[in-house]
Amino acid sequence: MNPAPRELDVRPILRSGGEPFQAIMEAVSGLKPGQGLRLFAPFRPLPLFKVMESRGFGHAAKEIEGGDWEVLFTPNATGTPVEASADAENADTWPDPAEHLDLTELDPPEPMVRILAAAERLQPGEVLFALLSREPIFLFPELAKRGHQWAGNFDETRTTFRIFVRAGKKG
């Protein structure tokens, strides 16, 4: 089963004169595999539909009280299957990540170094989330060897690999 959609209300940002696009994209990047995004906005965010479509999300928009709009973005079924360590059951029940890392611009093997270092800082049971530009093949066995669990897959455009790492007991 897919995790419940993440909710993001951009009305306060717009009301204070801010630009919500960055916040929306950060929220999208942080979605778990298969997770949707429920967005609240003071208008029907037409340009966003196009952007989200290119990232593999469909949308359903409805008007709510006060002329505001609620939009549910759901990932299309074309996303790649989720891979996970052998002991990573119910990854959708893991707590929200304590740390987010964007490693998409780093050369291999630097992303591996950063993730292993970040995992060392986590308390047992805590989760980190990272974005990479490719599948970290050599990282997986090292995480397993250290007792960490992981789950991840490519996003719908197949250009970014998303991984959740849940720290195991300190060994």
Partner: peptide, 8 residues
């Protein structure tokens, strides 16, 4: 499990 280790 996916992943690759060093070839001995």
């Amino acid at each position: 499990m996916p992943g690759a280790t060093l070839s001995r």
